[in-house]
Design a protein around this nucleic acid. Structure first.
Lengths: 152, 152
DNA sequence: TATTTTGCGGTCAAGCTCATCCATGGCCGC
DNA sequence: GCGGCCATGGATGAGCTTGACCGCAAAATA
């Protein structure tokens, strides 16, 4: 992971379909040298995968919200995590410091859909308390992955 | 944006280097038909770009934090937004409902680095108040883009 | 209503760029 | 001085790209 690897990664992040020769010309390496470095970056896990950055609105999920969750005392944490991974609407879920247990980032199509999601959380008896914050606009937008039923 | 487009997008999100023939076989189309659909998805903006999902830790940013920000009364909002876009550590920045003005998602290398970032925010006189939450672990992780000085 | 027209979206085939593989050679470390 | 690692350059084959043709469906005209 030297300066060249970082440059190559940046170029790939901008456009992963660049040709190896283009990248090589940009960083001062031959195409096969670049190929070998990319192979190593992928093998080491520094590059997790080649993917596409999509527009949530185009996939019917124009609304972005953050939900703070305090787990119920009786909720089993593993069950909640499995639930979070199975939910298509959950783009991110992090265990965090502070008064709340988890922060969850969700993409939904409408406010009723958001309400349904919250109801489901409550019905599953995972949460003791929650607080929802809706994004009005995004100054810096993160990448969006349209295929969300990750793991299983 | 029909069912085929969604399937193709999902396949690309899993692995953007799949060959057109592979995708075609998976969805029941010819390679060039798939090519045309991908071209349209990219032209319409449904697919924003082809990119790589990287491991933040491999790029020296193992720590993920969320910072709530209440803008100072005298802060000019446009200046703050420009600042947010110029910051390499800011992965996301959203204008939100609720008592806080913005939520910012940051990737940093260490806690001192996080502290320096917060100091910079304060020194620039943008914030009246802030609250920082650190992610202990990620149940569902979002994609990470290593090249963060986005716009300019 | 029947017929024609128009346009979109698909398949197929051909040319050619580009990724991959391999052998050679140079550089650094042991 | 020796060995391992890595970049270079060329050959081969896969796969992307382009263009022409075909079929279907919707709209327009008689």
């Amino acid at each position: 992971m030297d300066e060249l690897d970082r440059k190559i990664s940046n170029l790939l992040a901008e456009d992963a379909r660049r040709s190896l020769s283009d990248i090589g010309a940009a960083v001062g390496l031959s195409a096969s040298a670049v190929n070998e470095r990319i192979r190593r970056l992928a093998a080491s896990g520094a590059i997790r995968k080649f993917t596409v950055d999509a527009d949530p609105a185009a996939f019917g999920k124009p609304i972005l919200a953050f939900v703070w969750i305090a787990l119920a005392a009786e909720a089993d944490e593993a069950g909640f995590r499995a639930f979070a991974r199975s939910q298509a609407t959950i783009a991110e879920c992090h265990h965090v410091t502070g008064p709340w247990s988890y922060i969850v980032k969700v993409h939904v199509g409408s406010l009723p859909e958001l309400e349904a999601f919250l109801s489901e959380l409550k019905a599953a008896r995972f949460i003791a308390r929650s607080e929802t914050v809706i994004a009005l606009s995004s100054v810096v937008d993160g990448p969006f992955d349209p295929t969300e039923p990750r793991h299983v």
